[in-house]
Write a protein that binds this DNA or RNA. Sequence first.
DNA 1: ATTATAATGATACTTTATTCCATTTGAATG
DNA 2: CATTCAAATGGAATAAAGTATCATTATAAT
Lengths: 199, 199
Amino acid sequence: MSTENKRNIGLRERKKAKTMANVQMHAMRLFRELGYNATTVEQIAEAAEISPSTFFRYFSTKEDVVITDNYDPLLIAAFEDQPSDLSPLQAVRNAMLSGMVDMSPDELDTMRERNQLIMTVPELRGASLNNLIQTMQLFTELVAKRVGRKPDDLAVRTFAGIVVGVNISVMLYYAENPDKDFSKLMDEAFSNLENGLPL
Amino acid sequence: MSTENKRNIGLRERKKAKTMANVQMHAMRLFRELGYNATTVEQIAEAAEISPSTFFRYFSTKEDVVITDNYDPLLIAAFEDQPSDLSPLQAVRNAMLSGMVDMSPDELDTMRERNQLIMTVPELRGASLNNLIQTMQLFTELVAKRVGRKPDDLAVRTFAGIVVGVNISVMLYYAENPDKDFSKLMDEAFSNLENGLPL
DNA sequence: ATTATAATGATACTTTATTCCATTTGAATG
DNA sequence: CATTCAAATGGAATAAAGTATCATTATAAT
């Protein structure tokens, strides 16, 4: 190990990230043009100029090419940054919204298309919900820490489940109403929850 | 049409129901013994003494042999039976619990094993969550009707999402703690929600 | 008893996903 | 700059899920 080799951002890593993004881009384009099920991994691989085997090295399933994201670390950081005088619910709400406000129009567009595809295609919806549950388990840890309870406390679990439930309803609503503002919908949904579900 | 042919419970229908239950039984046994992924549809078909093609006529996917149930009609009926002076949340809570109290120990056992399998195997969890969303959409209609709002009202949607979220957390908790009483867990989780998530 | 309809089994086929191995490419070192 | 090492890649072979078709068998209706 020489003077500087801590950072993993050599040519190799940069190339991998580039390939990954490229594959996702072509995949989304093909899904848009042909439909998700009508598009084969072989076609995606060909469009991205890689072999099918390489595709599966980047994404372990066809679903993953749509599902894979890295919002969790950001979400965690945002949650832990929330002042401790906020209620857990307010902290979650702020954390979720903070991630969306500073998204470029381009990123918002990508997210919208992704959400529509995911919520429309059963396989993707299932995979995505599975993903949400992992996020939920992460959240359970964080919330437990914050309120000084154990992560296997049913109240903490229920809290995390409810947050996920709000997310699901908003994602579905947004898929049906893509012209609305996602962060506003999320904000509104959390408002309802904070106000004790006024129906 | 003769004097009596309204009821669809001829020999054919009875046989089908029997075959279906038989396939599910053998599938669950094999999944228990070999694991879900290590069990092939061919093995299930052989154990149940049917052909693979017949398997796919009963269940459109391998997942479906675990997921398929018919609780929705019961749940709907139970919800609509709730007195109108109850809040929507209380009505949902009662409806969900009413379905569980009169289950035989045998049925409870089956449900416990099913839940554990589903929550443990990613594919099944995804498929099951997808199913839950369908139930959620059903519920959205019912709640909207009950409170006199439209089914595309975000508040109604959020409410339904939250109910689903509670269910998810309880199902996961129950999979990890199979010795607890499922209906008690559900009751406790809804209590937390009604009390405004005391954390 | 006969005709019509529905369920079944057998076969062939497509696609997803996994595995193994030989080859290529980038990284690190003297 | 050449060489060595490790990682990424492509190609081929394989297994299982799921689909489509068609002949056969079982049930229902008259």
